[in-house]
Write a protein that binds this DNA or RNA. Structure first.
Lengths: 193, 193
DNA sequence: GCGTCAAACCTAGGGGCTCTAGGTTTCAAC
DNA sequence: GTTGAAACCTAGAGCCCCTAGGTTTGACGC
């Protein structure tokens, strides 16, 4: 019989594609085995178990995500960079919903140590914000504002939560404008109580 | 043998509590049966199947969510209302992660028809924004900005994605200030290209 | 060409989950 | 007390995860 010639990388790559099609939480060992035309048990020589498979998909996805963001912001600054970052973020989530969902899983320390992508993503985000001249605490708050909006909007969009007729891309662009405005005038919005 | 005296409502309520403890996607019929000290099969006289159980939990959760928001904004206006809305949103997600996850499922039309909570939530959000004097399109964009941020931040917080030492509540408050500022100056952030 | 050995793949089977079919028990109302 | 519906049960099929242990393939050295 012809064998598939699998390796851990090929299995994980196929799993990522399957996750994009079926959803990350519908990623199953048996479904993946079917797609690779192999018995379930065969996959366990490439991957420890389902949790391991999911974690590996997450590492792959986080790396691809960081690469996309890095490519998008390269050579840009200020609002240009913010818009490029935002567009790359959203398109990754929309084009690769399974991988995007995978990026949100909490990795165990062992897996986390195998990649620098999370740190790279954070560094890219902070680099983006440097143009707005915030101190460390304000910058952290701003990072959380951006991450919150980007993630929330993308997640809602992917899950079909926007029902109003208004063009979703237009709302996204408008929000990015609003966020740029907020960042530019960050100190003006501060409220003492 | 003593019987549990279950009904669909009791089953669904127990399922919601279980979801809050174990996570909405770890909600299982057999786990729920264990908790209710009943055989799996017994639950199928109260609920059609797992998908039906999940949908009913979603309807319950969306209703409770809308009630919380409504109670929070009652009698408030302007920034006060925004802050109350935001606090109610976040605390619901943090206190009831399983129910909150349930609110994000897409209901089939039949289930959707059994509740007015989604419409109520949208109405509350739009009422909140009325203070900022936006037209329909701008208001829709603003709703999406708010929903995106609220959902994304809460989701990231619940899933432990904020690792920086900065107090999470402080970041939330700061972001709410920033959003209020953005809404107040909505037209100023508009960029023509 | 032939043995060797690791990697790739397999069958068999246990345990958990969902769900159906069909039977039994409880309880309230007559 | 009988009756009928609601609540609950056992039994079992099908799918999924995973392990144990065995077989096949293919590259490499002799």
């Amino acid at each position: 019989m012809a064998r598939a010639g699998l390796s851990t990388e090929k299995v994980v790559a196929a799993a990522a594609d399957l996750a994009d099609e079926a959803g990350f939480d519908h990623l199953t060992v048996s479904g993946l085995a079917r797609r690779l035309d192999v018995r379930d048990a065969s996959l366990y020589s490439h991957v420890r178990n389902l949790a391991d498979l999911r974690a590996r998909v997450a590492v792959l996805a986080i790396g691809e995500f960081a690469d996309r963001i890095a490519a998008a912001v390269a050579g840009r600054a200020g609002k240009d960079a913010l818009a490029a970052f935002a567009a790359a973020y959203r398109s990754f989530a929309v084009d690769h919903p399974g991988r995007y969902a995978a990026t949100r899983t909490q990795l165990d320390p062992e897996m986390l140590a195998s990649t620098d992508a999370p740190a790279r993503t954070i560094a890219l985000t902070r680099a983006l914000l440097r143009a707005y001249g915030l101190d460390e605490i304000d910058e952290t708050d701003a990072v959380r504002l951006l991450r919150g909006f980007f993630h929330g909007f993308a997640d809602l969009e992917v899950n079909g939560a926007f029902l109003h007729g208004r063009d979703v891309s237009a709302s996204w662009d408008r929000a990015v404008d609003a966020l740029h405005f907020t960042l530019t005038n960050w100190h003006l919005s501060k409220e003492e109580q």
